[in-house]
Design a protein around this nucleic acid. Structure first.
Lengths: 155, 155
DNA sequence: TCAAGATACTTTAGGCCTAATCTATTCGAG
DNA sequence: CTCGAATAGATTAGGCCTAAAGTATCTTGA
């Protein structure tokens, strides 16, 4: 049972598309979360944050992390704090602006992330292995359209 | 800025597809959540739960709601309790099994949901209005494939 | 019959997330 | 230079969500 099958309020096209999109994302996301927990005793938000820092070895400020991850600043604080306590990231003071920090992966953080990223990609590849190259490409293109029209549409 | 643009750990096909899927869902979900809050002072989980009850006028047991919504039982308790307090749903005792309740929309709940559902569908239709009928159909089909292969793939 | 296990639901502890508010610092117009 | 506005970040209150453990009830099989 899932929300899409369950929730046929009506037969309308756009709504059905949205529900299916939501269901697909949820199916994949759940597995990734469960596996991150089982194998690495970590969470998706922590992984996502570390993946941003991985891309920016010089570090990111809290508000940059907030924008990249599309979450509120308070939330970033709440994820960085325990990562710092675990020794995976560090806050380096920013001489130019005493209000700001620069958050970076530590050596241990880089080591841990490299391993997790490699494994996580294997999960995704495996999960989507049933799709042909053509289906991949077509879906990627159409989702690009969704992204485009959604960002254009209103508020 | 969004997670997909931001997070190009590498160039691999499946991972990029997953990130884009995630981004699209998030874009739409955020708007729906924000609008439900602004216009109806409610939340997506509450809306989803009510939409299940709308489909089953005779009511659903807590564990049925749990399965339909794909969330834990404890979570269902946490959503039903305040809805009940607000007079939108009611717990009817189940004579056949004194452990169970049957949760139903109240008259007020039906009235509120009908209005919200109508409006929410308008938002989705509007948000996806930029897609052609053909794109809709193709995307729906491909997401069906994702659902299929994902559910088939392992654990 | 009746005890062991299963089932329905709730509770608890803990993490994620937001909006709103707070503190400290910087910027910028006069 | 200085004061008000903007900005960086942290904190708080509150809702969602999970896993695990707890309570009450039902079922089943010896």
């Amino acid at each position: 049972m899932d929300r899409e099958t369950a929730s046929r309020i009506d037969d309308h096209r756009a709504l059905r598309l949205w529900l299916r999109l939501f269901t697909c994302t949820q199916l994949i996301e759940r597995r990734v979360r469960a596996r991150l927990r089982e194998r690495f005793d970590t969470t998706l938000p922590r992984f996502d944050l570390m993946s941003q820092l991985w891309r920016y070895p010089e570090g990111l400020k809290m508000n940059e992390l907030s924008r990249h991850l599309m979450v509120t600043g308070g939330n970033v604080t709440g994820i960085v704090d325990p990562l710092e306590k675990d020794g995976l990231v560090e806050r380096a003071s920013e001489p130019a602006d005493r209000r700001a920090y620069r958050v970076r992966l530590t050596r241990a953080g880089r080591k841990a992330f490299a391993e997790m990223a490699r494994t996580q990609e294997e999960w995704i590849v495996e999960l989507l292995a049933g799709l042909s190259r053509k289906e991949h490409a077509e879906l990627y293109k159409l989702l690009g359209r969704v992204k485009q029209v959604t960002m254009e549409a209103g508020s």
